[in-house]
Design a protein around this nucleic acid. Structure first.
Lengths: 206, 206
DNA sequence: TTAATAGTATACAGATCTGTATACTTTATA
DNA sequence: TATAAAGTATACAGATCTGTATACTATTAA
């Protein structure tokens, strides 16, 4: 099973750096130093390899995040902040190609595609993890705070990927502090009226 | 030049819904009802078609956003909020496939690739637009507020695309109000210490 | 009306891509 | 050492993809 791991590692690297459709089977087996037949003995098809890669990424990423957070502090409300310090380290790496799951959803856009389902589940588990910390930190509304913080993280990831803003997490760090502070001081949030919708006057045509 | 527009429209639609690499030339000309040679008389290559599509999207999207904002209110600080109401309408559409520019960066990950450059420029122009509103709204630090709000928008886009959270913009609506209020009441922001970095103990290996 | 321009239809070259067939070799295990 | 499992090398089928060649037909404008 060593060859299988080599394949998954190299496939992850290539899919992440160059995309799923743009990366051919031949590139992967060459990088992994493995025969083509070996790949097809471990995985029925490229699609199945992609799914296995995504599951591996999910596992690696969440473990990395949890371990890094735990390594910095054990105080829940501080852990919420630590999320953004870990994010800061990640976005600042040289070969940063965004979140593989977000990238997967760009290429497998139909929500029923297996890759999209795995990506969606990945984000759900991440939010669940953040929510657990928020509960431990006695936030007033842990699910909402988790969604807010998760959204900030994705925003920073995109800013770093698209605009090369390696320090995008710093921006979110401040906002996160504000939200966490607010969530611990105010038991309920106020909802304000949105400006009126324009209806069908100017539909975004796409 | 009518055929050229048909090509661009259909290419935009297909690239957005199915991805750039996954969409072949033949699919595009069939959808546009145009001969293959016509495509290659208007565009040197598929890559050039992609660039033209991205530029068209940039133009369409920013015009749409500006017109929608202007249509809702003329008061600058209210316009900052209106950004998120427009976003809310957009994310709630049935055929929502994320931001084409973010998707392009997922497939053309190298920052020097022309498509990536166009996408980066698109986000820069968006931030500039938000910054101008922030200035008119007398925000304490318009560039920072613009970055914060832009980041929120991208976060909501990703949440809607990956997790199908059609109402993700509602989450950002609240945060935006908080940030705008803070930016108008506090002339300078306080910077807090980040938790210490772990250095090379646990590098995210990708 | 004539001449230039824009578009069409078809076929095809050449590359690349996924996946398979087959016969062989290495490695691990009992 | 004998046997099963894992891996290799090569060739290839068949599909698909980008881009071109060529000869034809509308359309438009002088």
């Amino acid at each position: 099973m060593r060859k299988r791991d080599q394949l998954l590692d190299k496939a992850l690297e290539l899919f992440h750096a160059e995309g799923f459709h743009a990366t051919g089977i031949d590139r992967i087996i060459a990088a992994a130093g493995v025969a083509k037949m070996t790949l097809y003995k471990h995985f029925r098809s490229k699609d199945e390899l992609i799914l296995a890669v995504l599951r591996r990424y999910d596992e690696k990423f969440r473990n990395y995040l949890m371990q890094q957070v735990e390594l910095r502090t054990h105080e829940p409300s501080q852990q919420l902040i630590a999320l953004f310090d870990v994010l800061d380290d990640w976005l600042d790496q040289d070969g940063f190609y965004g979140c593989l799951m977000i990238n997967a959803c760009a290429e497998f856009s139909n929500k029923q595609m297996p890759a999209h389902v795995v990506a969606s589940e990945h984000k759900r588990l991440l939010l669940l993890y953040i929510q657990e910390i928020a509960e431990a930190a006695k936030a007033s509304d842990p699910p909402v705070l988790a969604q807010q913080l998760g959204l900030l993280m994705d925003g920073a990831i995109v800013a770093a990927q698209v605009c090369g803003q390696r320090r995008a997490a710093r921006i979110t760090h401040e906002i996160a502090q504000l939200l966490i502070h607010q969530s611990r001081s105010h038991p309920s949030e106020q909802v304000l009226e949105p400006t009126q919708s324009s209806g069908s006057d100017m539909p975004w045509p796409d």
